[in-house]
């Protein structure tokens, strides 16, 4: 129950931060912390579903961005943990760079698939900001994450 409340409050704060910083995802660092610290079927999966619905719902694109964004983040994280410690800063910096590139590629692809156009410079800036911000946000959430919710010996 405490976990549900913690993640609900986290999502509320993240949505508000997204209001002040349009184009950025503040939920994804929380998803990564959940993947690092919790059992995936108990928390991470539900958090992922909520994040996909929130991002696709509030976004202007059709369904598809959120699922691809979080799906590929999950895949990159799973691949990365084969080579790095799952909580290493190096992996988080790499994941940030990957997310920056992914934001541009996904926006470009999905916009073109829908036969629309977009502002290039906006998306480039958002990608750079997402890449730079992700490791910082991950660090903050990682430090704030309650000890009693950690199940790390089973997931690391």
């Amino acid at each position: 129950m405490f976990g549900v409340v913690w993640w609900a409050l986290f999502c509320l704060v993240a949505v508000w931060l997204q209001f002040f910083f349009p184009g950025l995802d503040f939920i994804v660092p929380g998803v990564v912390v959940s993947l690092q610290e919790e059992r995936w079927w108990r928390s991470s999966f539900w958090l992922l579903v909520a994040a996909v619905l929130l991002q696709d719902g509030m976004g202007g694109l059709g369904f598809g961005y959120g699922a691809a964004w979080y799906g590929l983040t999950l895949l990159f994280f799973q691949l990365g943990r084969r080579f790095f410690d799952p909580r290493s800063v190096a992996l988080m910096v790499l994941l940030g760079a990957f997310l920056g590139a992914l934001h541009f590629v996904l926006t470009f692809s999905l916009i073109r698939l829908e036969g629309m156009h977009f502002s290039w410079h906006h998306v480039v800036w958002e990608s750079a900001a997402q890449a730079a911000l992700f490791p910082v946000l991950w660090y903050v959430i990682h430090k704030l994450f309650p000890e009693r919710l950690k199940e790390d010996e089973r997931t690391a």
Partner: peptide, 15 residues
């Protein structure tokens, strides 16, 4: 209620 929000908000929108 809000301006465009989230990474999937590639379009100029308001809520």
């Amino acid at each position: 209620v809000a301006q465009r929000m989230g990474p999937a908000a590639a379009l100029e929108t308001i809520l």
